[in-house]
Design a protein around this nucleic acid. Structure first.
Lengths: 350, 350
DNA sequence: TTGAAAGCGCTAACAA
DNA sequence: TTGTTAGCGCTTTCAA
């Protein structure tokens, strides 16, 4: 079957003895077209199988009504939720989404940015890759004044908006909670400290220790890639320790769940021997035993906020814009961190 | 800050005293440009901040190097995995992804299709909405000979490819497993029977019962929207029953997990009182207690296969194409369905 | 190897 | 209210 030639507004115009401009106006619901002509046009267009050509239109208008989204990975609970929110709001506002994943790689991230840049997306929504060290690949965007909103994994930079939660406070609060449960040797599993989410959670954790007059020991911090495997490895490392910690705060739930499974496997009781707290509030935390103490990370809301900020900037470029939006978080205390016998357990030798 | 005018190949050409065509050829790595000119051009383009204009190019070539993806929801484990696979392969092959979600609604699905159609995507990857009843909205695509590959939630139609697992067999096998564990009254929680995934799993389940000379009772089937809440509701319904079933086979893990939680909450033991089997092999199933028996649903692989089929068709439109690709599934037997005392338990009154 | 020129389909400024 | 016209930036055919 041959692809038949596409119908254009010229074809419609010719059939109706009108000019292309009138047809364009009618089809775009612009004013200055009589009701009758408009009806004739839409009807004929329909009948003839006309379809709008977005490229020609984009080319002409130098706008694409498209947002470029660059994220480290598509397959995480957080990102799936955030994207769902982003897509909803974008499409409600007549925007399409071009989505690319950097696969946690700086190099790939540069590539994604440049591809979407060439695709002339109107604006960018970005969560940084695991190891993105500098921001130079964004300069082409800044130079052309293309708005960029970062969310989740952000970095401050000129004239772009960050959407985050207060990771520092969240880390501080959840660590304080562990301390209040009587824990004194609290280890932390984190990710690359280049990333705000990991470094701030860590700083909050550390400060909480200091504020309660607990010493922070460098051995308490383990940096990993925060995969399920990293969680298991971390747990095995604990199991091998002569003196194991009495609590663990880890920067995501994926690792938290793996840690719990591995520790219990080794006969360590949670939370009696080791209390565990995660981060993100993924659904799995509600279903495992013991239920996981964690921090609610409003994924969908962050996505929605980020895209709203972007749209606002796109449609209303004069307006004053906040440079950082902080969304509320919430500590969710469940079984995995609540000591039945308060304050009685401390360090213990396996 | 004003947006400065974009640099075009004309600008580059003027500066170098060349013609736009030569510049175009050089930038696109086409033949018939001397090495020296090519170098001069790429260098100048770089220096001048030239960026390729995809629209102009698309307009001219009538190709977009873009794939349209229409899925019911972005925020599910399955879809996140599938999309990750799709994006990877697409971008490796120089294709971009325009992604839209139908939000499980037929109406919205029609809208998505038509928007992406106007965006002139080269081909479509589609998983159908929960309640999509007919396929008429795809006719515009078929008419223009735009290739469509369905995955997961599919429907047979002319000249388009389906990527699935053998849902019937999977349902059959897992039900047989439950029967072999001594279960005789097996209830099924399913989704809209318009969707292949739900109807086929159900049919497999039913046939397994019949083949083992167990009667299928209409009350055994409950149709729901397969959310976590639907799982809880279903469990509560069981709890209220005079004579509760001795097993449950449900068509996804989200509901399975909710069912287990709710049943255990009511003092029902899993699997001793009621065995539970889910579908999809989501990570949560490995971490809950008891571990969840389920069917491995190769999400990423399905996505990868679907996009590969599409790319193959896009680049090689003459070739013969399979109309259905069936990916291997696997029953994963875990604690939630394994009776310690084989065959001894049957129906039981609460 | 390079250039000239037409045209992809649409929109917007201006004219009628 | 409708029409004329130019041009968005690129690619490609044909000619040099």
């Amino acid at each position: 079957m041959k692809e038949n030639r596409e119908i254009t507004i010229y074809d419609v115009a010719r059939v109706l003895n009108l000019s292309p401009s009138t047809v364009s106006r009618a089809l775009k619901n612009k004013p200055h077209v009589s009701r009758e002509t408009r009806n004739r046009i839409t009807e004929a267009a329909d009948k003839m199988g006309y379809r709008h050509n977005k490229f020609a239109s984009n080319l002409r208008q130098k706008k694409t009504q498209t947002i470029g989204v660059v994220v480290p990975r598509l397959n995480s609970y957080f990102m799936a939720e955030a994207l769902a929110g982003i897509e909803k709001i974008a499409s409600d506002n007549g925007y399409s989404l071009l989505i690319a994943q950097s696969q946690e790689s700086y190099i790939k991230e540069q590539l994604c940015i440049s591809t979407l840049f060439n695709s002339r997306v109107d604006g960018f929504l970005v969560s940084l890759a695991y190891d993105s060290s500098d921001m130079e690949h964004f300069n082409i965007l800044f130079k052309k004044n293309i708005p960029v909103v970062f969310f989740d994994r952000v970095k401050k930079c000129n004239n772009c908006v960050n959407v985050v939660i207060d990771n520092y406070r969240a880390g501080y609060e959840i660590t304080t909670h562990l301390i209040e449960q009587g824990c004194k040797n609290i280890m932390h599993l984190g990710g690359n400290m280049l990333r705000n989410v990991y470094s701030e959670r860590f700083c909050g954790y550390k400060q909480a220790l200091l504020d309660k007059n607990l010493t922070f020991n460098n051995n308490f911090l383990v940096v990993s890639d925060m995969t399920s495997k990293a969680g298991s490895d971390f747990a095995r490392r604990i199991i091998r320790m002569k003196q194991h910690p009495d609590a663990v705060f880890t920067s995501n739930d994926t690792t938290a769940v793996a840690i719990i499974a591995e520790l219990e496997n080794a006969g360590i009781r949670i939370p009696e021997d080791i209390a565990v707290a995660g981060f993100n509030n993924e659904p799995v935390g509600r279903f495992i035993k013991p239920n996981l103490t964690t921090v609610n990370y409003p994924a969908r809301e962050m996505g929605e906020t980020a895209v709203s900020m972007l749209l606002n900037r796109l449609t209303n470029s004069q307006a004053q814009h906040a440079d950082t939006v902080v969304i509320d978080h919430k500590i969710i205390i469940r079984e995995s961190s609540v000591r039945k016998t308060r304050g009685s357990q401390t360090t213990k030798t396996l």
